[in-house]
């Protein structure tokens, strides 16, 4: 991080510290949470200012708000079916919270809250608890038949049931690890290339020429990370929808 030290500190960027001065410090409000608030504010602003003109032919902002609404609405109806309309606000919140977190994290001096396994795990656990509660509410104890694929020989029960339970419990883990790993990998690479660049530049005139390499890599990486930011939010939301589909329809 520090330009003076010729060492690669790729992980320091993920360090939490409190923000908003003494008030933030007294309630342990971190810069991660500040970014969450900013992301939430941007989402709400997009929808508020997007919906306000109420025009039949939408302007740019209104089109963006409507596009995002339609995008998640179609995803939910396609993946879950018409029962999925109930979960539309939840999936919408989830998708845009993650998307804005990923995108805001790409800004300089910003912080990526989706690069914290605690955050992604909390979101994933929220999803899986919701899925389980929904499944139990709809199907009652019949839900547990989920762990027993129909038609399997009874002798395999001691193997199949634990495997199915592990597989079910691994859903939040894979959800959180996938998002976390993608975001961390991207930001670590940014940091590494940026540090290379600084180190090169420190080596004089030839170094300036050599610094172009890592700089170009970072520019390309930025494009790639924009893609990843959208894709990972999308994957998280789609998998949530698929799990909700399973919970609603059970097999």
């Amino acid at each position: 991080m520090a330009a003076g030290e010729p060492s690669i500190d790729a992980l320091g960027q993920f360090k939490l510290h409190t923000t908003l001065g003494p008030i933030g410090a007294s309630v342990n409000f971190t810069q991660s949470n500040l970014l969450m608030v900013i992301a939430s504010g941007l989402i709400l602003a997009l929808l508020y200012y997007g919906a306000r003109p109420r025009a039949i032919v939408p302007g740019r902002l209104q089109a963006a708000a409507e596009l995002s609404y339609d995008f998640i609405y179609n995803m939910v109806s396609e993946q879950i079916g018409h029962e999925g309309r109930k979960f539309f606000p939840f999936v919408f919140t989830l998708f845009f919270f993650i998307l804005f977190g990923n995108l805001l994290g790409l800004l300089p001096f910003s912080f990526t809250y989706t690069s914290h396994i605690a955050v992604t795990a909390a979101l994933a656990i929220l999803v899986i608890v919701l899925v389980t509660v929904v499944a139990l509410a709809i199907h009652g104890l019949h839900f547990f038949s989920y762990f027993w694929p129909s038609g399997a020989p009874i002798a395999l029960a001691p193997i199949i049931v634990p495997v199915e339970i592990i597989s079910y419990l691994s859903r939040p883990v894979s959800l959180s690890i996938r998002l976390f790993a993608n975001m961390v990998a991207g930001h670590v690479m940014f940091e590494v290339f940026a540090t290379f660049m600084v180190m090169m530049a420190g080596a004089g005139v030839i170094g300036y020429a050599g610094a172009i390499g890592p700089l170009a890599l970072n520019v390309i990486l930025m494009g790639f990370e924009l893609l990843v930011a959208g894709l990972q939010a999308y994957v998280f939301a789609v998998l949530t929808c698929i799990y909700l589909h399973d919970a609603v329809h059970l097999h």
């Binding site: 592990i166 597989s167 419990l169 691994s170 859903r171 883990v173 894979s174 690890i177 996938r178 790993a181 993608n182």
Partner: peptide, 18 residues
């Protein structure tokens, strides 16, 4: 590849924890 890795690792994490 990413997907295969994530699925295998997460199942293993859960299994080891249990």
């Amino acid at each position: 590849g990413m997907r295969v890795g994530v699925e295998l690792v997460s199942a293993m994490v859960v299994a080891v924890a249990i």
